[in-house]
Design a protein around this nucleic acid. Sequence first.
DNA 1: AAATGCTCGTGAAATGTTTCACAAGTCGAC
DNA 2: GTCGACTTGTGAAACATTTCACGAGCATTT
Lengths: 347, 347
Amino acid sequence: MTVVRAPSVKDVARRAGVSLGTVSNVLNRPETVRVSTRSKVEQAIAELGFVRSEPARTLRAGSSRMIAYLALDLANPFFADIGRGIEEVARENQLGLFLCSSNNEEAREVEYLSLIMQQRLHGLLVTAIDYESETLHKLLKRGLPVVFVDRTPGTLRHRCSVGVDDIEGGDLAVSHLIDNGHRAVAFVGGPIAIPQVTDRLAGSRQAIETAGLEADVLTVFETTALNVAEGRRAGARLLGQPKRRRPTAVFCANDLLALGVLQEMTLQGISVPEEVAIVGYDDIEFAAAAAIPLTSVRQPRHLLGKAAAELLIEEALLGSTHEHRQVQYTPELIVRASSRRRSRRVS
Amino acid sequence: MTVVRAPSVKDVARRAGVSLGTVSNVLNRPETVRVSTRSKVEQAIAELGFVRSEPARTLRAGSSRMIAYLALDLANPFFADIGRGIEEVARENQLGLFLCSSNNEEAREVEYLSLIMQQRLHGLLVTAIDYESETLHKLLKRGLPVVFVDRTPGTLRHRCSVGVDDIEGGDLAVSHLIDNGHRAVAFVGGPIAIPQVTDRLAGSRQAIETAGLEADVLTVFETTALNVAEGRRAGARLLGQPKRRRPTAVFCANDLLALGVLQEMTLQGISVPEEVAIVGYDDIEFAAAAAIPLTSVRQPRHLLGKAAAELLIEEALLGSTHEHRQVQYTPELIVRASSRRRSRRVS
DNA sequence: AAATGCTCGTGAAATGTTTCACAAGTCGAC
DNA sequence: GTCGACTTGTGAAACATTTCACGAGCATTT
């Protein structure tokens, strides 16, 4: 298996007995070249197995036909689903999609951003950790079309973004628990500094206030990350509480945490939802698939991805006439067994 | 925010008052240029915010510093984890990683392969659907370094690949069930044509034979895909069996199926593992996190990714002197609650 | 038969980088 | 003060593509 230099337009031109410009015309404006010439060229292309060099096209054009989605963690199905939505739209628009995962590490995020800059990509969709990084701002200054996904950074609030109303989501979850008679609710999530966590917590408090209850109905258990292991730890901490102060319901800032809590409860022989009700957030596929199906706040993930990609394409095409827009979706509560009603109450 | 043309080496050279070649030297062979000149250039680079154009470098070099991983479905944590392993090695070797998901669609796979060819990538890691596609063979003929991940195609058996011994995995799972006294075992998986499914089924049969049991101990329930929904359907079909013929244990070809089966059992009030024991495959994070933690055959996913990437890099660096290798790992059975022992038996 | 207008095709220029043969400058040795 | 050796910097060429002004050839009109 010898390495063959990839044939170029020049090779095709020579073989077809035409000029190099004509080959380019066949490729880009086939209607401007006579049928007989065109087929000669097409045959030469087929015979040589010619494939256009994307780097050369990009160099010439100044920017590539690729966009990137830089996510926090592609192993989290939430982001993977957003990625699918993006991919769909990118495909429809003949754009390649470059998926990157920063794995929640700032260093990796910066590395990817600088890779994206080097690649002269056409646009960027990003859920970032650090919205103030020099690299990100350099990209923006260069005029790269950017759409922020799921997190809207304070100082860049005017730029294009898509998100879900997390305050509303938190409100939905906790209102549901209150309606079901719970008067001691735990909020599990963190780090609190993450905007989503802040908002979901704010929504929870709003629900309690609206119901005319005291603020101390809600106890906050902060975690260091939003994954299953942290959920398990939070569950253990929760069970460590003196029985009379132990919450009868838990609202988790995402489903991974909720699954962790659920697992810890099952392990410790606490029955769900009888002794402790659980509500998650994101409604990932595994939430419904849990043996005790999880009540969760569903985000239109796929739609989120599609909307973000469409926004990006609009920005990339319209250029300077483009007006930045913030698209906000409303979450939906999916009630399942993990928070089944325990007592009635006139609402 | 105006769009600024990205500065080039030429701009840097002008600003620093040196020739263009010198800038290139600073970038690529800093030790060959006098310190005073070097710092002038470095200052100019910083002032202009110069970023190398990767397309131009690629054009010049003939191939890019990027490799691709084309997976079957990145939303499946199994592949996402492999991706992480690959990413780690790629990063260590200063290579960019281009993640693609064919979503189990042949058309998408072909599209991505042709995108990869156009991009003049440095190498390809792939878990493909169609190993006989023209596009794939064109890539191979061009001499592109390729490593097959998790599935080794028949006709390309001599090429580099990494995988896990799926026959052994199937054997492990079913031997465990037999040891636990089960004498009516269901195999859930499909399409049977998928090599992994074939192998895991073969392993199951091997276990039964080794135990000296009749082949009809095993009933096969073929599915059309390896996801949760199909698992649920298989679970329902299973429960539709006349009671005396109903299997007391289920071995699923992957964890998604197993979670689906588990969910259907819980829904129908069948207790796991008392009435039906379940064993999955892959040991994804959600297997352990299920409310009834799932027994599963663990594959060293992360390691698989790392090994594949290392193989690819070796192939890319050594070129023609490289000898193709097939790396095979051994799976491990992780026993959890879903298959807890029901009766004893001297083994 | 000259002029006009059209259809097709041409070839040079430009994109940003790297490499490489070579030139210019410096220094020491004879 | 000339030669060689070494250090440092130069600039042209090459990579594959696209674009664009232009020219050749031909048919139609005057």
